[in-house]
Simulated assay, not measured.
Amino acid sequence: MLKKTFLRSLKNTGLTIALLMSASATIAQSRLPVTTLNAGIHLIRAEVAATEADRQVGLMNRTQMGLNEGMIFDFQAPAMVCMWMKNTLIPLSVAFMDADGTIVNIEDMQPQSLESHCAKKNVRYALEMRQGWFKSKGIKTGSKIEGVPLGSKS
């Protein structure tokens, strides 16, 4: 009887550990509020990183991202900003945009790199998409992303 009780307790402990590990993985892949942006005819489902903490984490530790999914970083006011890829596992392209959504410049970034990629002037937003997404859609410097300013959308 003692052996059965011990085995049942061990099984329950293992289940608890598995559930905690699953919850931990979910937290690592947690999602932020989402907004829909337009790049011409292309719809983008973008998570919104509007707080300092959310901007610092960004897309770190994500192992996958949908074809038209990305993350928009709202810096709240025009600023000279740079992005890097520490702990980011997916190759990304970043479009730096002014307050009305006009793209200032686009940079390709390599996974897990500390190399800085900077806006060429003060910008309000940065939009990260899978690497090559902008190029494949014909979106370049001077193109406009509709749906900004973000305001209270989510």
Rank of each mutant, 00 (worst) to 15 (best):
G142K: 02
A53E: 04
M21I: 06
M21H: 08
R31E: 12
G58Y: 10
L67N: 11
A23I: 05
T88Y: 11
G138T: 02
M71V: 12
Y125I: 03
G66I: 02
S143H: 07
G101S: 11
A46H: 00
S136V: 02
R62L: 05
M83H: 14
G14Q: 10
K121Q: 13
F73E: 06
N12M: 09
S9G: 09
V123W: 10
L15S: 12
Y125H: 01
V81L: 15
L20V: 08
L150A: 04
G138L: 00
I106L: 01
T88P: 11
L67A: 14
M97C: 10
M60P: 04
T26F: 08
V104C: 04
F75I: 10
P78E: 15
L67D: 14
T102G: 01
E128T: 06
S22M: 13
S22C: 08
V81Y: 15
A23Y: 13
R124H: 13
G101M: 11
R8T: 05
S152A: 05
M21F: 15
G58N: 13
F75Q: 04
S93W: 15
E107S: 02
G147Q: 08
G142Q: 06
R130T: 11
C82K: 15
V148R: 04
W133D: 04
S22P: 00
D74W: 11
S30C: 03
K121I: 00
I103R: 05
Q112I: 06
S154M: 01
L67H: 14
S143P: 12
S136W: 13
I17G: 11
K140I: 00
A77E: 09
L59M: 10
F75L: 04
M97W: 12
L89R: 14
T13N: 08
N87I: 05
T5W: 13
K121F: 08
D98I: 00
T16V: 11
T36H: 01
L20W: 13
S22Y: 14
L37C: 02
K3C: 03
T35M: 06
L10P: 12
V34K: 04
Q131R: 13
K144N: 02
S30A: 10
L19C: 12
Q110M: 07
I44H: 10
V94G: 04
K153P: 01
T35L: 07
R130F: 06
C118A: 04
A99T: 00
G151Q: 04
M80N: 07
S93Q: 12
I41T: 12
E115P: 01
G147D: 04
P111A: 01
P149H: 12
P33Q: 05
A77G: 03
D74S: 13
S143Y: 07
I44V: 14
E115A: 13
E52M: 10
M60L: 00
E52N: 11
M109H: 09
G138N: 06
G14K: 01
K140G: 03
M71H: 09
I145C: 06
A25W: 14
A79W: 14
G142N: 05
Q76C: 09
K3R: 14
L20F: 15
